[in-house]
């Protein structure tokens, strides 16, 4: 336990001093601010770009447009940044040999994986919460929250999908010794989930729902029950990925 706390503190120190924490917080705060503002000014922007004399009717933006931006930007840009920032989390330790000192000091390999998972989860949660808070605050300031249902579940789903990606990054990290391998592995994983989504039977269980169908949940086109199975599968995949990462790492020659 003492070793776990010590190594988690080291992870925090690393993320702080190598500016990863700073980058994550900045990017997600920016995304959070952009969402409502883009929704607000898009109609005005379009109007000003129209040639004179032409007239189109643009619907007044609503809170839903702001959330639509949120659930478009975070899965695309936000998750990409997340994966890129943390792709080297194992690879850097392997390629530089920094883990050797730690492991020969009796640090258990399980602790390495769990500490890294803990710290990345905390950073992702903080960044995501910041993004959500910014979007939420501006959205209720500009519009009323009428017509928006299940916002919390929707936001939670996307958060959980982020955790899944972190688990996959760690699994990729112990499988491949460089970060391109990890990027490819994580990218491949997401593409595989998208391809699986083509089959309507698997669709019901597919965790990608958590990052792609959030708007449907907000507009009541999908129901809470539709999200139950993907959440369960997602949690199982997270546990399985971390478990296999630990097992593979235990058998790895360093």
């Amino acid at each position: 336990m003492k070793a776990y706390i010590a190594f988690t503190k080291k992870e925090f120190c690393e993320n702080l001093r190598t500016y990863k924490l700073f980058i994550m917080l900045c990017v997600f705060l920016l995304l959070g601010l952009m969402n409502p503002i883009t929704a607000k000014i898009t109609p005005q922007l379009l109007k000003s770009l129209m040639p004179e004399g032409m007239n189109i009717t643009i619907m007044e933006p609503t809170a839903l447009d702001s959330w639509a931006q949120f659930f478009k930007n975070v899965p695309q840009m936000g998750l990409s940044v997340l994966v890129i920032v943390f792709s080297g989390i194992m690879a850097n330790e392997f390629s530089r040999g920094t883990l050797i000192n730690m492991l020969t000091k009796g640090l258990s390999r399980k602790v390495v994986i769990l500490s890294k998972f803990t710290m990345t989860t905390i950073i992702w949660t903080l960044s995501y919460a910041l993004c959500f808070a910014a979007t939420y605050a501006y959205t209720i300031y500009f519009w009323s929250s009428e017509g928006v249902s299940n916002i919390l579940l929707s936001v939670f789903s996307l958060w959980l999908f982020g955790i899944l990606l972190l688990a996959i990054i760690l699994l990729g990290g112990v499988l491949f010794k460089n970060n391109y391998g990890v990027l490819l592995f994580t990218g491949g994983f997401v593409v595989a989930l998208m391809l699986l989504n083509l089959s309507s039977t698997i669709q019901k269980y597919n965790p990608i729902t958590l990052a792609s169908s959030n708007m449907a949940l907000l507009t009541n086109n999908m129901f809470v029950s539709d999200f139950t199975m993907p959440i369960v599968i997602c949690v199982i995949t997270i546990i399985a990925s971390i478990g296999s990462a630990i097992m593979i790492f235990n058998k790895k020659q360093i």
Binding site: K2, A3, I5, A6, F7, K9, K10, C13, E14, R17, T18, R96, G97, T98, I100, N101, M102, L103, T104, K105, G106, L107
Partner: peptide, 30 residues
């Protein structure tokens, strides 16, 4: 490994740490 101290051929450390901090980390791990 609890009996052993190991110095690798090219020891690598976390470059963002200071010597005291590094030894503290090592000590806490042991």
């Amino acid at each position: 490994n609890k009996y052993i101290g190991y110095l690798p051929d090219i020891p690598e450390f976390y470059g963002y740490m200071k010597p005291y901090e590094y030894l503290k980390l090592c000590g806490e791990i042991t």
